[in-house]
Design a protein around this nucleic acid. Structure first.
Lengths: 134, 134
DNA sequence: TTCATATATCTGTTTATGCGGATATATAGA
DNA sequence: TCTATATATCCGCATAAACAGATATATGAA
């Protein structure tokens, strides 16, 4: 029961619902999420930690970046499936998904990964330096 | 989105999950719930109000008693269906459901409604006076 | 080793929420 | 009307959790 409540608590926050919605389409690193949701690093990281503690997501470090993906543990599937059904009904989630899709398409068009695409965008907008370590 | 978060917030509390679980089997009045869950009146009423504000339950007054039932609004069905799937997995919910079923069966065996059964139980245990106003 | 970057965690503040006990309200019987 | 009962709400307190900004940690390049 404690676990169930923990899962519902994890789902009862707008930021976390938006993050989970993005992760339904595959793993993402923290900076992707920050970029798509226009949120600060501290906020995104905090909520990802919350989701990890609830067992809903899994993380994997690769160099400097940490990638998050939905946990495969089947006991959470009912709740996550419910969430997926919401995407088409909830405008905010739809908008986020579309923004992610657009980014993925643009990357594909340039023949690069979404990771590289993000780095290039950052360099262009001067948010990052020219040194790439990914 | 606000509404969705509100619903998940409503689901992220043990007491409220237990109440919703009972209501899956039909409407109940506040005192039934207090009796089955062994909880105080203030607590049960507070959580029912919370559920009502989230739109998950509906109330109907009949005399002194107020009956609560699951809201029929179909937009909540996905989440409530998820919850129903949990009953068989979560021991606490299973126990509650069985206690309710036992009470219903005992009432039926005596050829009375569960409402009357509850009143008689109270009188027997001296928790109520002999005056019945229901 | 030193520095820059990505991420995680800490800090102080604010808000939400849980609780039990007390009180208020609504209804029905005497 | 007065009283008892069922329910709702209020009160004070304790804990959880959200936030932004600051700081700490981990990693990779120079």
């Amino acid at each position: 029961m404690k676990d169930i409540v923990k899962i519902y608590k994890a789902l009862s926050d707008e930021t976390r619902l938006r993050i989970l919605n993005l992760l339904h389409d595959g793993e993402l690193c923290v900076c992707h999420i920050m970029d798509i949701l226009h949120m600060g690093q501290s906020k995104v990281s905090r909520h990802l930690t919350y989701l990890k503690n609830a067992g809903l997501v899994h993380d994997r470090r690769k160099g400097l970046w940490v990638y998050y993906s939905l946990s495969k543990n089947k006991s959470y599937i009912p709740m996550l499936r419910c969430l997926k059904e919401l995407r088409m009904e909830v405008r905010e989630l739809k908008v986020d998904s579309e923004r992610l899709l657009k980014m993925k398409k643009a990357a594909k068009l340039s023949g690069i990964t979404i990771d590289k695409y993000l780095i290039i965008s950052k360099i262009k907008s001067n948010k990052g330096k020219a040194r790439c370590r990914c």
